[in-house]
């Protein structure tokens, strides 16, 4: 299992469209992918669960990925967070 901490850098935080981008990428992998915020865990494949994490800008998200393609999945999802969830400004 791979674990890595990333932070939310886009101003609106985990709002609906940002969540959709995460779910979109997560669904392409076979590994089990979880996001953990302040002890609350959500499967990255469920948009409702991710929306309920309600992480705002500045929050830290722990990515936990376990499965056959975990390295690739970690790279893509971490990159999405680094890219401000697809929102530069």
């Amino acid at each position: 299992m791979l674990i890595r901490a990333v932070s939310i850098t886009n101003p609106l935080g985990l709002h609906a469209r940002a969540c959709a981008r995460i779910v979109n990428i997560a669904s392409r992998f076979r590994s089990r992918i979880s996001l953990v915020v302040r002890g609350r865990r959500a499967s990255a494949r469920s948009i409702v669960a991710v929306m309920l994490l309600t992480a705002a800008v500045g929050a830290t998200v722990r990515l936990e990925i376990d499965g056959p393609d975990e390295a690739e999945a970690m790279r893509e999802i971490a990159a999405l967070f680094h890219d401000g969830l697809g929102e530069r400004s």
Partner: peptide, 16 residues
């Protein structure tokens, strides 16, 4: 388009 994608995903989510 983005809004519709979100709604499609919510619809497909097992919670709903």
């Amino acid at each position: 388009g983005a809004f519709l994608d979100v709604h499609w995903m919510i619809l497909s989510d097992s919670t709903l």
